[in-house]
């Protein structure tokens, strides 16, 4: 360490010490005070908030609101479903299925009738062959 550096370090220490001392002293005199109006406004706002009931946590309020909303929807929707069933009877799907079943039954009956007519001429000869053996 040369002489200049050594002197610089000693000077820094001295200045640093003086600086700390001056910072402490000047802090006492530093004029930064809130205004009287501001302090009275603070008291008013505090009184307002202290008189009001303590606020519930936001999460709890949200959950309660969602629950009430869900229950309301359920309460409105449940009677409507029953009314729909009573007033409208079988649903559309049930109607379509029964109509298709009727069509299928009719087609099956027609097919059986055609088959009977086609097989009738052969049925006598078949019995004859089986009985006569010729």
């Amino acid at each position: 360490m040369n002489r200049n550096q050594h002197e610089g370090t000693a000077w820094d220490r001295e200045l640093d010490s003086q600086l700390e001392q001056r910072l402490r002293l000047d802090a006492v005199d530093w004029s930064a005070e809130p205004s009287t109006e501001s302090l009275s406004k603070l008291q008013t706002r505090l009184a307002d908030i202290q008189q009001a009931p303590r606020r519930l946590p936001l999460g709890l309020l949200t959950a309660a609101a969602l629950m009430i909303f869900g229950l309301s929807i359920w309460a409105l929707a449940a009677p409507l479903e029953k009314t729909d069933e009573a007033a409208l009877g079988p649903s559309l799907a049930e109607g379509v299925v029964s109509s298709l079943q009727r069509e299928l039954d009719a087609v099956t009956a027609d097919a059986n009738a055609v088959a009977d007519r086609l097989m009738k001429p052969f049925s006598g000869r078949m019995f004859g062959l089986l009985a006569g053996g010729d």
């Binding site: 530093w30 930064a32 005070e33 809130p34 205004s35 501001s38 302090l39 406004k41 603070l42 706002r45």
Partner: peptide, 23 residues
């Protein structure tokens, strides 16, 4: 109120801002 105001005054840029932050 006074020490906290001085702390906020040192942080913020104006007297009015520090008063608002104090409240």
């Amino acid at each position: 109120q006074r020490p906290l105001f001085r702390f906020l005054r040192m942080r913020s840029v104006s007297h009015d801002d520090a008063e608002e932050l104090l409240q």
